[in-house]
Design a protein around this nucleic acid. Structure first.
Lengths: 209, 209
DNA sequence: TGACTTCTGGATCGATTAGTATAAAATTAA
DNA sequence: TTAATTTTATACTAATCGATCCAGAAGTCA
């Protein structure tokens, strides 16, 4: 927060949000500085670099902003106040809901905005891969908890279950981009969760849950 | 096939294959003409345009080549010589196998190579979307057949089932890119197919299949 | 007021983008 | 041998890429 000097002529937060929508829609590399500056309030190149340092620095800021807003849907996976099964189901449903909303680009920014890029931008891919890995670790922790709880047996193939849910979760981004409506994905989730019930039903304690 | 004139100094088919690997790995827009020409045997710009007309025309050719080679794994979905359930299972397993092979870029070219792009290349996205839609229609036909067969009840939510398998299928591309091994995806498929068995078990005729 | 600080408009940077013009080279057919 | 055909190397577009420079505008502070 500068106390002196000429005040900024544009709203920085709004500019970041505008940039987020562009990166989300078109991806990191395919979004040009010219597009960004236009969407951020027709700001000049000088203003852009004074406020954001570089395209890459802006993107990192955008990713942080995404994670702490839209990305919150995956926080369900690490919500230990609800049973593991409910946490996973909620995480999937909220992700599907968010990714199909029309008020912003379809799909997940972390999954889509740098799936492919030139070799020079490999670190951008790796940065997003790390964020996706975090979500995956929450999913795993969730299933670990279920095994510890006794919701799932000790013999449960944890890696397999993580991959099952995670693969579906990643697929939502692609489906959302192809205009598959929320309702269809939502019913698919209902069906997918029955896999869990099959496994938990096999647990010794009782026949059904 | 020109009958006269100076013979081409490079192998056209090999050049297309090299281009396919680049587009597959880095995506349509992020693959530059310079990269392509280098990988296609260090050919000159003149040779490139004489043989392929444009970057876009080459990409279309690459997509055709992909579909008739690696893309054949999804042909399982329309193989009516095997039962619908087996067709789907085989399609998923073969896709997972192919997408995790290390002899070529990871994931599926149709899903990855233009998920995001600049507005000017929207027609490229749409072209790939059409190809993905074809695969989806085969999946749907497969499930329609199962309902017609009596493998699944008339009350089966077909759209939901298509979305369930298709979402998982799309997710494989993302998982493969993140280095998830084939074996894990394969066991997840085994588990996913149990959803089918739940539904088919409910069919009147007998209790289990 | 004047010193200090920060931001902005406009011109510009070198590198790279996809694509082209031209003429020589290499082949076949007559 | 000569004409016709096609591909080649080389040089070159115009446009765009991300990024920078500088002078002046617009504030705060003493």
């Amino acid at each position: 927060m500068p106390r002196t000097g000429r005040p900024r002529a544009f709203n920085r937060d709004e500019a970041v949000t505008a940039a987020m929508h562009l990166f989300w829609e078109h991806g990191y590399e395919s979004t040009s500085l010219a597009q960004l500056r236009a969407a951020m309030g027709d700001i000049s190149a000088a203003s852009f670099y004074a406020a954001f340092e570089s395209k890459e620095a802006l993107f990192r800021e955008v990713v942080d902003e995404y994670i702490s807003s839209y990305g919150q849907v995956s926080e369900s996976f690490r919500d230990t106040s609800i049973p593991p099964r409910a946490a996973i189901e909620q995480g999937l449903r909220r992700s599907a809901k968010m990714q199909t909303e029309r008020s912003h680009p379809l799909g997940c920014l972390l999954v889509l905005s740098a799936v492919t890029c030139s070799p020079e931008q490999n670190h951008i891919q790796e940065m997003l891969a790390k964020e996706r890995e975090r979500v995956r670790s929450w999913l795993k922790a969730c299933i670990d908890r279920a095994v510890a709880n006794g919701d799932l047996t000790d013999s449960t193939d944890i890696a397999m279950l993580v991959t099952l849910f995670e693969t579906f979760l990643r697929g939502i981004s692609s489906q959302a981009r192809d205009q598959v409506p929320y309702e269809e994905i939502d019913s698919a989730i209902t069906q997918l969760m029955k896999v869990w019930d099959i496994l938990s039903a096999k647990t010794g304690d009782q026949g059904k849950i």
